[in-house]
Simulated assay, not measured.
Amino acid sequence: MSQKSLAGTPHYEILDGLRGIAAIMVVVFHCYEILIPDFNESPVAHGYLAVDFFFCLSGFVIAYAYDSRIHRIGKKRFFINRLIRLHPLVVLGTIVGLLGLLLDPLASTSAVEEFGWGKIAVATICSVLMIPYPYLGRYGNVFPLNAPAWSLGLEYVINIFYALVLVHINKKLLTVLLAIAAVSLVWVTWQAGNVCVGWSGENYWEGYARVSCCFLAGVAVYRFGWVIPNKLHFIIYAALLMGVFFFPHRDNDILAEMLFVILLFPLIIAFGAGTVATGWVSKLCAFLGDISYPLYMLHYWMIWILGNYAATNPGQQSLYIYSGVILVASVVLAWAALKFIDEPVRKWLTINFKSRSESQ
């Protein structure tokens, strides 16, 4: 499969499916943060690496979708497209997170008593505008109403950097930037003890090393034509990716994490983009890809409730049952939000902006 033929391919089904697998593992990882807080004991302690896979996949997809046409459509249209694609669920995630905070039936004290309406209002506004606000408490999350949104904030910044800088540079300079970003990520990971940075006020700035390295790696996979045609089955890719998340965690296992993030994830994308899915695999991958983003953005309010439930000491069995309910409910909520809110809103926005641009 040549790069030319790839340009005519509307979707990479295998990559869509892997994005869905990664999103599901994020939910599982967040449940296990309550079930087994010690990473060295958790069976899915490397689940946070799903975010690095998202970043790398995003770099590949953005380069594929816009490298050859951003000069034609213009940067303004690029930014509008990205906002239409990402921001409806940013707003919905904020609303759901706010309701979860205010209506949590297991909270020991009401959110208003604990934080006050002022801080809650500021946190809500900042969340909608994607402005970090690690001042509400809640473990210092930079987006306390919807914790996973931290990665979307970095995604917005790297998208801006792509349109202003990356789209204009050649392969040589891209390689230099990728090398600098990789060294930065190694240094950040060495200092922190692992790559799980960017989500809190204490390590927010370190997250830029994380998104830069992974996104640039994805861009490099596309620009260097590293798509590898093959006939591997989706199950192999899924097992390999899940193997990363289930890989045993050890203190300062920096080498393993760097191998996963810097080498393995780009390889998975290079091979996955070279595989054509058919039949039930294609349908499964399409479904997983469709729910991946709403699943990622709409599940965390239930994790806060799980944490409050755990504080009542209900027993491990009850916690596991409730975690299973969260996983199933998250998938159902993601699908419903996609079909009844996200897709209709994006369709309306796309038509509205197209009509406005044509009338100008």
Rank of each mutant, 00 (worst) to 15 (best):
T175P: 00
T175Q: 02
V176W: 10
L177E: 07
L177R: 05
L177K: 08
L177N: 09
L178C: 11
A179V: 14
A179K: 04
A179Q: 07
I180T: 07
I180S: 10
A181W: 05
V183Q: 09
S184H: 05
L185T: 09
V186A: 15
W187G: 00
V188G: 08
T189R: 07
T189N: 01
W190F: 12
W190M: 09
N194F: 04
N194C: 10
V195L: 12
V195T: 15
C196W: 15
W199Y: 14
S200C: 09
G201N: 06
E202T: 11
E202V: 02
N203T: 15
Y204G: 00
E206T: 12
Y208F: 15
Y208C: 01
A209T: 14
R210S: 02
R210G: 02
R210C: 00
V211T: 15
V211P: 11
V211A: 00
C213M: 14
C213W: 08
C214I: 04
C214D: 06
A217K: 11
V219N: 08
A220D: 03
V221R: 11
V221N: 09
F224T: 00
G225L: 03
G225Y: 02
W226F: 12
W226A: 03
I228Q: 14
P229E: 05
P229G: 02
N230C: 07
K231N: 15
K231L: 03
L232A: 08
I235T: 12
I236V: 13
Y237T: 02
A238G: 09
A238W: 06
A239P: 05
L240D: 07
L241T: 04
L241K: 01
L241Y: 12
L241D: 04
M242F: 06
F245N: 08
F245V: 03
F245T: 04
F246W: 07
F247C: 08
R250C: 01
N252G: 05
N252Y: 15
D253M: 08
E257A: 06
L259G: 14
F260V: 13
V261A: 00
I262N: 10
L263Q: 00
L267D: 05
I268A: 03
I269M: 02
A270P: 02
F271Y: 12
G272I: 13
A273R: 11
A273Q: 11
G274Y: 05
T275A: 15
T275R: 15
V276A: 13
G279Q: 04
V281S: 15
S282R: 15
S282H: 14
L284V: 07
C285Q: 08
C285P: 05
F287T: 00
L288E: 11
L288Y: 12
G289F: 05
D290N: 10
I291Q: 13
